[in-house]
């Protein structure tokens, strides 16, 4: 089945995208907190086909000591894709894309955590992607933010996010791999602190008009509020287990 990219239909006559979603509909998201016992905090997030697991260790002593910041904790974020998470097997060694994503994601989370409470320490966040279909860096951030909260770290707010974009001439929310390949594709991952309105991650690939860009920001804000609700439920669910002596 090889269609030329221009022949591919991004919106059918009913305005549905190829996977049946409407223009701004997002794929299903499931979240679970506290999945790695050895860690200080952890979470697992599935967003569409994307599957990410995050573990937090810290705050802990930062070694080598000379790299520690005397005024605050340092967040070290490691975003890694498993070799089997992509269609063509990927070398397990981190590539330039993973390193860039690790950098901007760590910076995003640094804004949300009260780092000054823990000088000279490191907060290590390990996120592994086991399956992917566009939007892994945002899926990873959702998991990492939950893991940080789960670890008991003081935070301004949870970090929520979404990849907004454009394909087939229209703006869309939560692109998939198929849409990423459109000739006019625009990929715009955004992460924010929803109750604070702070944008902490913003990247773009593609061409947008000024008006389209502002519209994307509005779409992102609305979705982040809704996604935050899902994150909150996941955190509270961990503590809603009841104990019966019979167990």
């Amino acid at each position: 089945m090889s269609k030329k990219k221009d022949e591919v239909v991004y919106f059918d006559e009913k305005g549905k995208r190829f996977d049946g979603r409407s223009q701004f509909e997002i794929r299903p998201i499931t979240l679970k907190v506290g999945v790695i016992e050895r860690s200080d905090g952890s979470a697992y997030v599935e967003w569409g086909q994307n599957k990410a697991i995050a573990a937090v260790y810290g705050p802990r002593e930062m070694l080598p000591k000379h790299l520690a910041d005397a005024n605050k904790a340092t967040i070290r974020y490691y975003y890694r894709m498993a070799p089997f998470s992509v269609p063509d097997r990927k070398n397990p060694k981190p590539g330039r894309r993973e390193i860039e994503i690790s950098k901007v994601s760590g910076e995003a989370l640094s804004h949300s955590v009260d780092l000054e409470q823990y000088p000279n320490t490191a907060i290590d966040i390990f996120v592994t992607i086991f399956d992917s279909n566009a939007g892994t860096r945002i899926t990873a951030l959702l998991a990492a933010s939950l893991a940080l909260a789960d670890a008991g770290l003081p935070m301004k707010d949870l970090v929520s996010g979404i990849a907004v974009g454009k394909a087939g001439g229209k703006l869309i929310a939560d692109m998939n791999k198929h849409e990423e390949d459109a000739s006019d594709a625009v990929d715009l991952p955004i992460a924010m602190l929803p109750n604070n309105n702070d944008i902490v991650l913003l990247q773009m690939d593609g061409v947008l008009t000024e008006k389209e860009f502002y519209e994307c920001l509005d779409i992102a804000k609305k979705n982040c509020q809704e996604i935050r609700e899902l994150q909150v439920s996941a955190l509270k669910e961990k503590y809603s287990v009841d104990f019966n002596s019979g167990d």
Binding site: I36, E37, Q49, K51, A82, P83, F84, S85, V86, P87, R89, F130, D131, S132, N133
Partner: peptide
Amino acid sequence: TLQNANGSAILTLGKTKVVAGIK
């Protein structure tokens, strides 16, 4: 459960948990 892998398994042995993906 992992669609990009040609075969996959997530196994727990007690509390040890591992994931294998085949390509």
